[in-house]
Simulated assay, not measured.
Amino acid sequence: MTNTTPARYRSPGVLAAAFALSFGLAITASHAAEGSVEPQAIPPAQPAAETLSARQQAIPLIAAFMATSDMPRLDAALNQGLDAGLTVSEAKEILVQLYAYTGFPRSLNALGELMKVVEARKQRGIQDAPGREPGRVIPTGDELLAVGKANQTRIAGAPVQGPLFDFAPVINQYLQAHLFGDIFERDNLDWQSRELATLGALAATPGVESQLRSHMAASMRVGLTAAQLRQLIQLLAKHGDAQAAARASEALAQALATMQKQTQPN
């Protein structure tokens, strides 16, 4: 079936709800065999590490302060990230992606804050690396939907399906075509960075604990280690919000327990 919804799936309310539900309690990831559709290019695996780089450490803080509209601390986190080697393009991409989790108003406000930060740094004689724009050609129509479905499956660990998508199948079409297609096919930000940003935003948002737990597991699927995620929790506790850190800690513990059960023989 041809994708005929390029304009409507860009609604912020639809996208935010769809993404939350895609990893929530109402959705199950089925391991049933499906057609083997692969994305145009799967991001290369990155070596496992026990600590986050200075650049990576800034990402969840940027996301958390964006989610809570804490502009003074967002300003500080953006400066921290740029000082650590985050390019302007990467910083913009983080804030653009997060509209799927925090909504357009917070994304627009945060991008405005980034503009101020970059200009203020120029006035101080700091020339930040601009970075690059996405180089990959984003497909359209049926090909976009297929690529997005493949990306979604890889991040979720299995094809995402369940009663909710039987009830409202179009919501998964929006999810696959736009978030996992249009956004995740943009190759100017790696998937580990995208997940670090997602975790920071969700940890700072009360009421989305099931999605936070699912993204803890997704983060490990794209190459982040449990040690790195514990460091993320420490960063939130030290620089962010104690409740956000507590939510993230509980989510990681539950994700690890689930993974351990899945690996145990029956």
Rank of each mutant, 00 (worst) to 15 (best):
K92Q: 12
E93D: 02
I94P: 05
I94G: 01
I94D: 02
L95Q: 01
V96F: 14
Q97K: 07
Q97A: 10
Y99A: 11
A100W: 10
Y101P: 00
Y101N: 12
G103H: 06
P105Q: 08
P105R: 11
L108K: 14
N109E: 03
N109Y: 11
N109G: 08
N109K: 14
A110M: 04
A110C: 00
A110H: 00
G112Q: 08
M115S: 15
M115C: 13
M115E: 15
A120G: 13
R121V: 05
R121T: 02
R124L: 11
I126N: 11
I126V: 15
D128L: 12
A129G: 11
P130Y: 01
G131A: 06
R132M: 15
R132C: 13
E133G: 10
P134N: 02
R136W: 02
I138T: 05
P139Q: 01
G141A: 08
D142C: 04
D142V: 14
D142W: 12
E143N: 05
E143M: 08
E143A: 14
L144Q: 03
V147H: 13
K149E: 15
A150V: 01
R154D: 01
R154F: 13
I155H: 11
A156P: 11
G157F: 04
G157T: 06
Q161Y: 14
P163Y: 00
P163H: 09
L164A: 09
F165E: 03
D166H: 15
P169F: 04
I171F: 12
Q173F: 01
Q173M: 09
Q173A: 10
Y174V: 06
L175I: 09
F180T: 01
G181Q: 00
G181R: 03
I183T: 15
F184C: 08
F184V: 06
E185Q: 13
L189T: 04
L189K: 04
D190R: 03
W191R: 06
Q192I: 12
S193N: 10
S193I: 07
R194G: 00
R194A: 03
E195W: 13
A201P: 02
L202W: 12
A204K: 08
A204I: 00
P206N: 07
E209G: 10
E209T: 14
S210L: 14
Q211Y: 02
Q211M: 11
L212R: 04
R213I: 07
H215Y: 07
A217F: 13
A218Y: 12
A218I: 15
S219R: 01
M220F: 13
G223I: 05
G223D: 02
L224N: 07
A227C: 10
Q228S: 09
L229D: 00
R230P: 01
Q231S: 05
K238S: 14
H239V: 01
